[in-house]
């Protein structure tokens, strides 16, 4: 089984702050990590490597620094790593990103493509499903459990109030949740191998076939109108009243705000 895992290097948002004046992320001094949903996807792939001898390729699109995230994946046990990097890709929204990644995946053989559900710095959950659309593949999102049944996969797709058990034929694309598993650590030997014996292949625009109108900032239909820091909530108002009256006050407030 050939698996491609799409990962994204993101700032560790547990340590990130917003500049109150500009509303942008202060990235300085913030450590970069593999996006948690992607890391679980990678772990799922590595388990299939351990159990079924799967071949695992990790793929990312990003600036040259994203090399570190790929080496980390190699140090965890991935077989091959590809960094898609080019000035032409800068400023991509989810559409341009998924077009670029799909073009790269088109050059690779695969049975399964794994992407994390969403990245903690963007929270769109769009790139994985869009790649599936570009490649005309069946997709199952929000996967929390995966098992192999011959040529098929049995997937547990989780919702807030329940789950689906889905059987899907490969090739297909799935998006994974960080709750799926606890990702393994890198190994000490794996780290040395990732820098000394394994390579991160660097692909640029000339290495893939893609419609140039779908690239980078100019190929991105998403326009950011404004970004802002969520304001602090007011202290709220306390009512010391009977339950029945309290219910009425709540209903009135909800009506006032057109929530119900």
């Amino acid at each position: 089984m050939r698996i491609i895992v799409c990962i994204k290097q993101v700032p560790d948002t547990t340590e990130v702050r917003l500049d109150p004046k500009t509303g942008t992320l202060i990235r300085e001094g913030v450590p970069s990590i593999i996006n948690p949903d992607d890391k679980s996807g990678l772990e799922a792939a590595l388990k299939l490597k351990d159990e079924k001898n799967a071949h695992v390729t990790v793929l990312t699109m990003g600036p040259p620094q994203a090399d570190v995230a790929l080496r980390e994946a190699l140090a965890m046990g991935a077989d091959k790593a590809i960094l898609l990097t080019d000035r032409a890709f800068a400023g991509s929204d989810t559409w341009a990103t998924s077009c670029t990644l799909a073009a790269a995946i088109n050059k690779l053989g695969y049975d399964l493509i794994i992407a994390g559900r969403q990245a903690i710095d963007g929270d769109t959950a769009q790139v994985g499903p869009q790649i599936a659309e570009h490649l005309k593949l069946p997709q199952v999102s929000y996967v929390e459990n995966l098992s192999v049944d011959g040529e098929d996969l049995i997937l547990k797709r989780v919702f807030e109030d329940g789950y689906h058990l889905i059987k899907v034929k490969t090739p297909c694309l799935i998006t994974t949740l960080k709750e799926m598993n606890e990702a393994r650590y890198m190994s000490v030997g794996g780290i040395f191998d990732s820098y000394r014996e394994k390579e991160v292949e660097v692909w640029s625009l000339k290495d893939i076939e893609v419609d140039h109108n779908n690239l980078g900032l100019s190929g991105s239909p998403t326009k950011v109108k404004k970004s802002f820091t969520k304001g602090a909530k007011s202290a709220g108002k306390q009512y010391n009243v009977e339950a029945k009256e309290a219910a009425k006050i709540i209903v009135d407030k909800l009506r006032e705000k057109y929530i119900i």
């Binding site: 650590y185 890198m186 190994s187 000490v188 030997g189 780290i191 191998d193």
Partner: peptide, 23 residues
């Protein structure tokens, strides 16, 4: 043991991680 902490500075041919003394 599992993550290779017990043989850091020894060559891989002797079961180590192939690292240096600083590692």
């Amino acid at each position: 043991n599992k993550y290779g902490f017990m043989g850091i500075p020894f060559p891989k041919k002797y079961g180590g991680a192939g690292g240096d003394i600083l590692s």
